[in-house]
């Protein structure tokens, strides 16, 4: 989005309780009155309801429900996350597009978000169903220069904690299945895919992709998927504004990310363990054979900590886990 529009939206948001005159807008933004008028018309086109009163000015009385760059901008309380924002109605995959932007030098915090993905990407290129307007599908470019590549894995857990915190605020009882899935009960409602470009000792960039099932009805899933997947709406019967939800997540992720960079993984670890799916329960691990293990927590580097039938502890970094 061009800078002027961004400023205009911020200005209108800050003064959302009163009218802002065209004169004031044109002075602050250093554009002509007619340019202000043109911008206001653009906002109306993206679904904003603008009240214009002679001698008093403009006031936004309703922000569109549909995802758009303007609507996301409205009240986005982040410092850097989403400062550069690419919204597209339809993309093949926000993850792939974010990779392209990152390779071209996209700045830290750049977000790619879409209403619909035609080739939504889960891990190992598994298809992630991402229909139009029912969920949040977005990818964020991160450039954590102070972080060593071997610790980058923890960022997935940071994002999971941020997502879970927001869900808690919304009154949804979520748990996190190590390392990266959010569950309501035994059903998945969100997934996180983290990809990295790094050299031995330097991270070039990380792309963290989040897929969140929001306004799906049961019928949207199909019976086979419904056994394993759910959405906020299926769980609460409520409808959610995607713009608002995105802004809550972006803000919380920024807060948790900064806490992680500043204080390390320790505070995140205990929050994560508070959300852990199947904590204290027995599962099957597939790594050098198949064996039973009890989940007892995560290590200070984020690895899954389990204890086997002999009482011996193991740390798992990369293993297939059969959860049920």
């Amino acid at each position: 989005m061009e800078g002027t529009r961004k400023q205009l939206i911020n200005l209108l948001f800050q003064h959302r309780d009163r009218y802002v005159s065209g004169q004031e807008l044109s002075e602050v933004l250093s554009i002509s009155r007619s340019a202000v008028w043109k911008h206001m018309n653009e906002l109306k086109k993206s679904g904003y309801e603008v009240e214009a009163v002679t001698n008093r000015g403009y006031r936004i009385i309703n922000v569109p429900e549909a995802l758009s760059e303007d609507a996301i901008r409205w009240g986005l309380e982040t410092k850097w996350l989403g400062s550069t924002l690419h919204y597209h109605p339809t993309v093949t995959s926000t993850q792939n597009l974010a990779h392209e932007f990152a390779r071209d030098g996209a700045e830290h915090g750049t977000v790619v978000i879409a209403s619909e993905q035609t080739k939504g990407k889960g891990r190992m290129k598994r298809y992630w169903d991402s229909k139009a307007n029912v969920g949040l599908w977005f990818s964020t470019v991160l450039r954590p220069h102070s972080l060593e590549p071997k610790n980058a894995t923890q960022i997935t857990l940071v994002a999971a904690v941020a997502l879970a915190n927001v869900m808690k605020e919304y009154g949804i009882p979520v748990s996190i299945k190590w390392p990266n899935d959010l569950f309501i009960g035994d059903k998945k409602m969100a997934g996180i895919l983290t990809e990295m470009q790094a050299e031995q000792d330097q991270i070039d960039y990380i792309i963290i992709g989040i897929g969140l099932n929001v306004n799906h009805e049961e019928a949207d899933f199909g019976s086979a998927v419904l056994e394993h997947a759910t959405s906020l709406k299926v769980y609460t019967q409520d409808h959610y504004n995607l713009n608002t939800l995105f802004k809550s997540i972006a803000h919380e992720f920024e807060v948790q990310y900064e806490r992680f960079i500043e204080h390390g993984f320790k505070p995140i670890k205990s929050d994560w363990e508070g959300y852990a799916y199947k904590m204290g329960e027995w599962l099957t691990v597939r790594a050098q054979g198949e064996w039973n293990a009890k989940l007892i927590g995560i290590h200070e580097d984020g690895a899954l900590k389990v204890v086997d039938e002999k009482g011996q502890e193991h740390l798992l970094y990369s293993a297939e886990i059969l959860w049920s």
Partner: peptide
Amino acid sequence: VEAMKLFNEIEAE
């Protein structure tokens, strides 16, 4: 190289 579901594309360098 994957660990904890982070997928690291390794370049030849």
